[in-house]
């Protein structure tokens, strides 16, 4: 299967290892992975700030960069949800309407692609310890993913998965919200981390590095004994 990966701007800049881990897992699952080196961003940051004009130009570039791909796979439900659910609004009544619709249907979040397209839920990963999974709002509500990441994690050898309270409540990141309304964002992170810590888990795992950047940053500041890991990092662990 030919997979064109989309690496979100903040993963490109801050967490390239997560991207390489996703590539490693996809290749193990038999995919032919390619990466268009022209790619930049899906356009969501400006769209969410209300700057739809600026966003649309960047979205147009995304359409060009990924128009020919058989499948587009990204380690972020947030970006995928945006391409699937909001590109249609931006390009409503335009000449690229059909392209946009088709691209949305070919674009997948990593765990969704593994479980529902490749139908692979075990890549032989191993991670010893206790983990809790955080439902990102984008995975849960924009991409409707609940069981897929858990299914993948349940097959990781040595890993015990425990659910935390209020697992579907937002962690408080929300892009520029975390900077513009920092005290609210932090209060939300505090409750999320309290719930995660109560499970005695060592690892806090999610599909979205944006949540984990926020939560990991808060943990670092607060000093909780919890390590954040992207799902791709977990699945790439324990084998070569």
């Amino acid at each position: 299967m030919n997979v064109s990966i989309f690496i979100p701007c903040f993963i490109d800049q801050l967490y390239p290892a997560v991207a390489f881990d996703m590539v490693k897992v996809l290749e193990k699952a038999g995919c032919n992975v390619s990466y268009n080196t022209n790619q930049t961003c899906c356009g969501q940051p400006a769209f969410n700030a209300g700057f739809q004009g600026e966003a649309k130009d960047v979205c147009t570039k995304f359409l060009k960069d990924f128009g020919d791909a058989e499948y587009v796979v990204a380690p972020s439900a947030s970006c995928v949800g945006f391409v699937r659910n909001y590109y249609g609004q931006l390009f409503d009544n335009s000449s690229v309407h059909n392209e946009v619709k088709s691209l949305g249907e070919r674009t997948f979040e990593f765990s969704d692609f593994m479980v529902n397209v490749l139908q692979v839920d075990n890549v032989g990963a191993r991670l010893n310890g206790k983990a809790t999974y955080h439902d990102s709002c984008a995975a849960l509500r924009e991409c409707k993913l609940k069981k897929e990441p858990r299914q993948l994690l349940s097959n990781v050898q040595g890993l015990e998965l425990v659910e935390m309270n209020d697992v579907e409540t937002c962690c408080g990141f929300g892009g520029t919200f975390a900077v513009k309304f920092e005290p609210i964002s932090i209060a939300m992170a505090d409750q999320k981390i309290n719930n995660a810590v109560s499970t005695d888990a060592q690892y806090l795992i999610s599909t979205d590095m944006s949540c984990l950047m926020h939560l990991g940053g808060y943990i670092k500041n607060k000093g909780a004994n919890l390590r954040v890991m992207h799902l791709a990092e977990v699945l790439a662990n324990g084998w070569e």
């Binding site: 969410n48 709002c137 579907e168 937002c170 892009g175 919200f177 513009k180 309304f181 609210i184 964002s185």
Partner: peptide
């Protein structure tokens, strides 16, 4: 702007 856009309200 004072929203993390979590979408639970719509839900």
């Amino acid at each position: 702007y004072a929203s993390s856009l979590c979408g639970n309200c719509t839900e």
